[in-house]
Design a protein around this nucleic acid. Structure first.
Lengths: 309, 309
DNA sequence: TCTTACCATAAGCAATAACTTATGATAACA
DNA sequence: TGTTATCATAAGTTATTGCTTATGGTAAGA
């Protein structure tokens, strides 16, 4: 059976009017056009749907069934149109994000504001480490990823949208905290608690020291940013972390920034997607949103307790 | 939005395979044919439904929605086809009958057998008087009617399918019951309890007497067949009724048939429908059924207590 | 019986749907 | 780097769709 939506639409109208001529008027058609659509539908069903007794029209039993079907199907079509149009107008939809754990804090801050503007959008946010993020991108399991600079050769498109200032922090009692300005040479004598090899922060730090022909001593490496800060708080060593993750500790004065020559090291946060990925409407909007708003949003992080600038 | 079922079918297949080529194979089409259908569907939705990342295909968010819609709609279509086919094959459907109250008894007997053969068919049976039957036919509110000979000029098609022997009955103590043979002349001296003017039985009796240039005296007329028999049982007069309604009374010997010259008067039961009425499949079958089976079914009425033949 | 309101049917026409084959582009992989 | 699998695109063909206008038949009602 090979129906058309047109046939159903016309049939529905005729079934409601039980009159071809007035159905034709409502559809802005000639009366024979209606007759033909009905005839074709009857041919498809291979059974009469409408019968004419005297001057009046009646639905046959099968016709009644067809009418129910037509109504239901056409309604479903309207629902679909509504859904699609809502998706396009961002009143509906789902945004799948993933962020590096280090970026978690400020991304959530951004998301909170974004979600208020688009209240009907549901969001899933995966906070995970760098290699998992690359995996998610690979498998197309998320729309966008926020992370440090992604590696080359993964068919990824990355746009920096926010500065990521890395600072050196230590326990408030650490002797370097009192120094107005610490040289890199002095710094290199210290021991560090830092993120694991392969992580974004670690790569950035390594690059920085290489550029200045220096080395740094690793006391400990850990995959969890919170744990690193905690280790520094306990005096296990100096930590180099993103300023964006320090809000609470600076406020609580459990860690202090050390004013080192050349610091903060300015790296960037990137919005990353697969090359060629066609973003959903809402993902497109979110990307634009963070590109624009990043600066304004991040001002809250320029806390009074910071030594530099 | 002007979708086609074809587009949905093809899209469903592609969404399942996530591969145009194999979808094309399953549909016995060339690969470009599939590409084009998808492209058209995307044009209708005015948004991409499928995205290609590297070598793999993925549904977009809207694509996922469209897939759900396609599945649901195509399933509904299958359901409709199933329903129609069941209706055609008489596994489903509804039969709307109406019968003259006098015919009630043997029609129900026929229906009982018929219903066993088509257990999935639901039946509604309206037992009512002649003028209501004509009204039902007029309004096309039933498929078939069983009644005596319908009047001319109502655009009705009537086929006789069963003899309707009218007999004269009286209380067992009535003096005519003892007579071997009663002449019409003798009969015309009696008083009758009979159906109301306009009823089938009454018309038949009137015609019979007219044909023999006789008259009959009406003691009482009533619109209810059971009441007429009861009146005869009470000795109020002779009754002329259809033999088919007498089964119980003959068995209980509360009424006896009088063997009158020229009786039984053979009239007929008719299956009646509106001229031009297209019967539903099941109604057609029922009509055939009663035309064929009437004779066999009615044999049960040839009771041993009958005098004639 | 004539008129009116309706639906069916026929003929004709323009648009397009639904394919095909041939060919081009590209990502994955050996 | 060449090969393979896969999808996109182009060109061309055929059948069908979806109308239109004109006309004919018929039931109901004045």
């Amino acid at each position: 059976m090979n129906l058309t939506f047109r046939q159903l639409k016309v049939f529905e109208m005729v079934a409601q009017h039980l009159n071809y001529t007035s159905a034709a008027k409502e559809l802005h058609l000639s009366q024979p056009a209606v007759s033909m659509q009905i005839k074709q539908l009857e041919e498809q069903a291979n059974t009469p749907l409408i019968e004419k007794l005297g001057k009046k029209l009646y639905l046959t039993e099968v016709g009644q069934e067809m009418y129910n079907y037509a109504r239901s199907t056409l309604q479903q079509l309207l629902d679909l149109e509504e859904t699609i149009s809502q998706m396009k107008s961002l009143h509906k939809g789902h945004l799948k994000l993933a962020v590096a754990s280090t970026a978690n804090h400020f991304v959530i801050r951004m998301l909170a504001r974004f979600a208020k503007v688009y209240p009907k959008i549901s969001i899933s946010l995966d906070v995970t480490n760098r290699s998992s993020l690359l995996d998610l991108l690979e498998k197309n399991e998320c729309d966008l990823v926020v992370m440090g600079r992604p590696p080359e050769g993964h068919n990824l498109t990355a746009r920096p949208f926010l500065e990521n200032p890395l600072v050196v922090v230590a326990h408030p009692n650490h002797y370097l905290v009192r120094e107005k300005q610490v040289s890199l040479k002095e710094l290199s004598r210290e021991e560090f608690v830092i993120r694991e090899q392969g992580s974004g922060t670690r790569s950035a730090v390594e690059r920085f020291f290489e550029e200045h022909n220096m080395k740094f001593k690793t006391k400990m490496d850990m995959s969890n940013n919170r744990a690193i800060k905690h280790a520094a708080e306990e005096g296990l060593g100096l930590a180099i972390v993103s300023l964006h993750t320090l809000e609470i500790e600076l406020r609580a004065k459990t860690l202090n920034i050390i004013n080192v020559e050349g610091f903060p090291v300015y790296r960037h946060w990137y919005v990353v997607q697969r090359e060629g990925k066609r973003l959903s409407p809402i993902a497109k909007v979110f990307k634009d949103y963070i590109m624009q708003e990043a600066d304004g949003l991040i001002k809250g992080f320029n806390l009074p307790s910071m030594h530099h600038n």
